[in-house]
Design a protein around this nucleic acid. Sequence first.
RNA 1: ACAGGUAGUCGAGGCAAUCGCGGGCAAAUUUUUUGUUCGAGGAAAGUCCGGACACCACAGAGCAGCGUGACGGGUAACGCCCGCUCGGAGUAAUCCGCAAGAUAGUGUCACAGAAAAGCAAACCUCCUUUCUAGUGGUUAGGGAUUAGCAGUUAGGGAUUAGUUUUCUCUAGCCCCUGCUCCCUAAUCUCUAGCCACUAGAAGGGGAAGGGUGAAAAGGCAGGGUAAGAGCCUACCGGCUGUCGAGCAAUCGGCAGGCCUGAUAAACCUCACGCGGUGCAAGACUAAAUAGGAAAGGGUUGAGGUUGCUCGCUGACCUUUCGGGUAAGUUGCUAGAUUUGGGCGGUAACGUUCAAACCAGAUAAAUGAUUGCCGUAAACAGAAUCCGGCUUAUCGGCUGCCUGUCAAC
RNA 2: CGGGAUGUAGCACAGUUUGGUAGCGCGCAUCGUUCGGGACGAUGAGGUCGCAGGUUCAAAUCCUGUCAUCCCGA
Length: 115
Amino acid sequence: MFELKRSEIFRGKREFNEVYSKGRSFANRDIVIYVLFNQNLSGRVGFAAGKKLGGAVVRNRVKRILREAYRLNKNNIRQDCALVLVGRKNLVDAKAGAAIKSFREICRKAKIWTG
RNA sequence: ACAGGUAGUCGAGGCAAUCGCGGGCAAAUUUUUUGUUCGAGGAAAGUCCGGACACCACAGAGCAGCGUGACGGGUAACGCCCGCUCGGAGUAAUCCGCAAGAUAGUGUCACAGAAAAGCAAACCUCCUUUCUAGUGGUUAGGGAUUAGCAGUUAGGGAUUAGUUUUCUCUAGCCCCUGCUCCCUAAUCUCUAGCCACUAGAAGGGGAAGGGUGAAAAGGCAGGGUAAGAGCCUACCGGCUGUCGAGCAAUCGGCAGGCCUGAUAAACCUCACGCGGUGCAAGACUAAAUAGGAAAGGGUUGAGGUUGCUCGCUGACCUUUCGGGUAAGUUGCUAGAUUUGGGCGGUAACGUUCAAACCAGAUAAAUGAUUGCCGUAAACAGAAUCCGGCUUAUCGGCUGCCUGUCAAC
RNA sequence: CGGGAUGUAGCACAGUUUGGUAGCGCGCAUCGUUCGGGACGAUGAGGUCGCAGGUUCAAAUCCUGUCAUCCCGA
C-alpha cells in the first residue's frame, strides 16, 4: 500500500536527463518537480538534492523527506508519468509534516493529483 | 573551595506502538512474499603521511628526483607513538620545539656605517714619531740697561699786590756731592739647544671608548701599557683534548689555548629511506556491432616496465574517420579485528588465555507519525581495508597532578 | 578516487623565481575647466597581501598546517 520499492526509483544519468530536458517543471518554496508523460518510465520517480544545500548529512536528509512525502501520497498521484523531485534550500530546516503539505500543494499545481 | 594542568570516556536522548528502507539466514516460491536477525563515526571528513592487497620482472642496477633529520626504543610501516637528553615558556603541575653539518665549497647580509666577512677596517676619540708655528720654563752665548732719597739746573703752576722765599709739577738727572741699597749681581732682549703644553701636516701604534646597525671578531673585573689589546689573571660562556658516568644523545671533573659572525624552512654536504600505478587496481561472464577503414612506425626490437641509461619482457602500437556496449558477478569484508583477564616492560607495546562476529550499499540503505519521561544537545554519513596525523565540534562524566586560601 | 591551480584596494590583475619600496588600470573623493553634465587636467584616500604558526635582524615572498574557490582525468 505505502511501499516504495527500489525498482520504482530510477537511476542513471540518462533517465534523469530525459526527465529534465523533456518534462515540465513546477516549483514552490520547498520543492521543484519535473513531470514527464512517458510510457517507458511511467510510475517511476527520482529524488535529487543539489550540492548547494550542504554536506552529505543534509542532502541525505532532504532526499529522505522527499521520499517519505512521495511514499505517503503515492496512491493519490497519477501513475502514467515519471517524476523527479528536487529539494530546495527551504527544505533543509523543514519538518516532514510541512514537506508533505508542500508536496500535495505542488502536485495539485502540476495537475497530477487524483485524490 | 577556587584556579589551572593532564589522561581517558559517553552520545543519531530513552521506552512503546504503527508505516517504511539495505544486507544475511530460513521457508514458501524461484518476478516476489513472509519470518527472523544485523545495520554509520570519534572524527566516517581533509586526503597530509605510512602500510596491506592487485597488476606491471615475487621489484633488479646506476644517475637524477623526493622525503626524513638529537639519542634510544616500539611497530607491518611511518613524517606516528613512548622514553630520555638539550633549548625555550610557566610560581608549579605541565607544555612547546623540521633539534645533523657554517674550519668541504658557493651565495646572501637591504638602509645606515670607516668597515658586513674572514687573518677586515681608522670617521671621531686615545697614544706616539718627525716637521712647522705659537706660548711657557730652562741652559749656553751675544747685546743693552742699572735702584731710592736729598741737593744742584731749566721751565710751568700755586701762594703773594708783586719779587724773593716756600711748596709742587715736568724735563734734565750727562757730570758733581751726601746717605741707603746693590756690586763675578739683577733686569730686558736676540740666537741656539733641551723640556712641557697647544694647533696644523705627514707617518706609525691600537681595536679599549664614541657613533651606525639586527649583527662590529667572547662577556665582565683587575693587572699591565706610551695608549691599548686574552697581552696576563680570576669568574662565566664556547671550543679542543682527556678521565669518569651512561647502550647513546649528553652530563660532570681536569688541562689547554682564545683561531672559529648569521643564514642550510639559500644552494649544498652527510646519514638513512623511497620502483611505478591504483579497487574506476585486477579477474570472470554475457550481450551487441562491421574483431571496420585510412595513414605512420615495428623482430635491424613496437609497446610495457619511471624522468633518463641499463637490464627484463617480446608483437603489436599511435593518429584520424565510422560504429557498438557502457550490463552483471567477483574483488567485498574474519581482520596488524573487538571485548575481558594473566604475564613481561618505566612506557609506547609485546605475549598468552577465553569469549564474540560487529554495515557492505551502487542515484548509494537509518526516516515519518503518536504517547510518556526528558528537553541543553554540537560537528557531522561508511564506498577496498587498516595504523597515524590534522581539522570541525555541543554538553557532560571519571581518574591523577600543581598552585592559592581556609579548617583540623 | 586521483591530479593540478588560484586567493593582494570596491573590480580585474602585476609583484613571490633571487626575502628589505606593496604597484598599474578602471572605479571613488576633492579641486580646476564648463552656463550645467560628460570628457579632460591636477591632487589623494582606500591594503589583517585568505587564515594560523614557524624560520630569519626582517616574510606578500621561504617552510608547515588549515580554509575557501576553480579546473582536469576516469
